[in-house]
Design a binder for these strands. Structure first.
Lengths: 166, 166
DNA sequence: CGGAAGAAGTTGAACGTTCAACCCTGAGCA
DNA sequence: TGCTCAGGGTTGAACGTTCAACTTCTTCCG
């Protein structure tokens, strides 16, 4: 492990602190507000919505479990539990996969399609209300750029040599 | 407030979609990366860190539970559970409050102070690595502004008339 | 003073996520 | 063919958060 730090540690500038705390706060506030709306309007969690949205756009209205997991960036285990719950509620079903007997498809049901179709406009409006109505077009563009920069760099650095955590 | 939606529902523009998905992704990636580092380097969760940081900066190294909850923007119940866990680990203690016998103080222990002092530099470096190294000063400034805009507006609108959920 | 209303904080149950173990099938190879 | 290893997916336990109920104390007001 990097034995010493201390003197070489550069603290966050004021601007950076505001950006950092702001990001956390922004995310928390918007997330919970949007989640609350979605729950109230459609009885869905954001997790439900992500799954339904991905499946509804997929060919045949179904996706391999791992593929779906990658699409919404969840771990397979988490998704598996989620699918079980949504299955019980009649929003999705599991289907066997002919090409690979280990695999499984997640498929959105007719009811699932209705539910998300009904939920989507309100959900979009909710995101708009809680987030974009407060921003100028320039800010929206900046945010898109910022996210892209950070995410891209993070992806990169996690593939090359691991940095010093120890 | 908007009683009807439907035909008037304006979908998100491309830019907005990228900003929205980007924000979620940015947050998720950075959050988990920073949390992983903090756990590995100091054995702390981000929740632990938030509590310790707030207490370590407070006068007398202690805060009323509700005050602390407000400072880190947690619900009281969540904080109460968290304090119990941290108490068991010797990072904080609960103290009775003389002025209000219902109340309680959360106080950081000597060990808690050591732990966060040791953790802080690495944590800051981690945030810098995963986030700010990817951004220009202009982007940092923009992000700070964006967060402020959205949070401020959200705070406002949640005090005035509730919007239409039903 | 006495009683109602409400704030501070905790608790336990329900729910969701994470982690590690596990099962089953497919792929590579001797 | 038979063996090992890797990938797809699920499961159950452990952990953290949320929600509603509850206890205790304070405040307000008749």
């Amino acid at each position: 492990m990097s034995s010493k730090l201390g003197s070489m540690t550069r603290w966050l500038s004021d601007q950076e602190q505001r950006a950092w705390r702001g990001l956390l706060e922004l995310h928390a506030e918007v997330w919970t507000a949007v989640a609350r709306d979605l729950q109230a309007n459609a009885g869905l969690s954001l997790g439900d919505y992500a799954v339904l949205a991905s499946l509804s756009e997929a060919p045949e209205h179904r996706q391999r479990v791992t593929e779906l997991a990658r699409a919404i960036q969840w771990e397979r285990s988490r998704l598996s539990h989620q699918l079980s719950r949504m299955d019980k509620r009649g929003l999705v079903v599991r289907r066997e996969c002919p090409e690979d007997a280990r695999g499984a498809f997640a498929e959105i049901t007719a009811r699932g399609l209705e539910v998300i179709a009904a939920a989507a406009p309100e959900h979009v409006a909710s995101v708009r209300r809680h987030m974009f109505d407060a921003l100028t077009p320039e800010q929206v563009e900046a945010l898109a750029g910022i996210s892209a920069s950070v995410v891209e760099r993070l992806r990169q650095s996690s593939s090359e040599g691991m940095n010093g955590s120890t």
